[in-house]
């Protein structure tokens, strides 16, 4: 800043390029500095909140396990410690819950599928010992308020997934056979959203089910 204060705005013609660069560069550096400071300051609570949200979701779908491990999907197998060269954030993850006595509870698995309006993201608990679901929780959806968003709020629908056998079979409320564990009553007025949830779970189980079963068998041997 060669210009002493008080001369007002410099005329457009007689400004050197170096001055333009210094002004922008200096301001840019200052802006970068400020952002890094705020980033450092806010990041811990942002990360803590994200971890807390995930922990709560896992607790809910695995019925309050005493602890859980994160498993990474590498080459069709689940591993607790992927090789050092792999970027853990890019690998698909499932969570294995444990009881205090060392027995495993089941897997918490995330799934996503295009719904009525946009992608619906959910997490569900799966018990490989019985082949049944433990619970389901929708994490993110932009479904129509009052209709499709019942997949988030309708406790009867959410309860349907507890103990349901996979693959699931969506039926109209009251029209299914009694005693069929794979049957899920869909929400009237939110058929597409209900079906999306069911399809997301079925597809994920079809893809990951055998892998989780194999992991559970190896772990108990």
């Amino acid at each position: 800043m060669t210009d002493p204060a008080g001369t007002g705005q410099p005329a457009a013609a007689d400004v050197r390029t170096s001055r333009l660069v210094t002004t922008l560069g200096g301001l840019g550096a200052l802006a970068g500095l400020l952002i890094v400071v705020v980033f450092r300051w806010t990041q811990p609570s942002i990360q803590a909140h994200k971890a807390e949200v995930l922990r709560q979701a896992i607790n809910e779908v695995l019925k309050e396990p005493d602890s859980y491990d994160t498993l990474y999907l590498v080459d069709g197998k689940l591993e607790t410690e992927p090789a050092a060269g792999l970027d853990r954030t890019k690998l698909e993850q499932v969570y294995l819950g444990h009881r205090g006595n060392g027995g495993s509870v089941g897997f918490a698995v995330a799934a996503a599928e295009p719904g009525f309006q946009d992608v619906i993201r959910l997490i569900f608990g799966y018990d490989p010992k019985t082949g049944h679901l433990m619970a389901m929780k929708v994490l993110e959806s932009k479904e129509t308020p009052g209709l499709g968003d019942k997949i988030l709020k309708d406790s009867a629908f959410i309860g349907e997934f507890e103990g349901a056998a996979v693959p699931l079979n969506g039926v109209k409320r009251g029209s299914g056979k009694a005693g069929d564990a794979s049957q899920v009553d869909m929400i009237t007025g939110a058929t597409i959203s209900s079906r999306t949830v069911i399809r997301a779970i079925n597809q994920t189980i079809a893809r990951l089910g055998p892998i989780m079963d194999a992991y559970a068998r190896n772990a108990t041997q």
């Binding site: 295009p114 719904g115 009525f116 597409i192 999306t196």
Partner: peptide, 8 residues
């Protein structure tokens, strides 16, 4: 157009 996306 909503609902066009879910294929099932």
């Amino acid at each position: 157009f909503a609902g066009l996306l879910s294929s099932g």
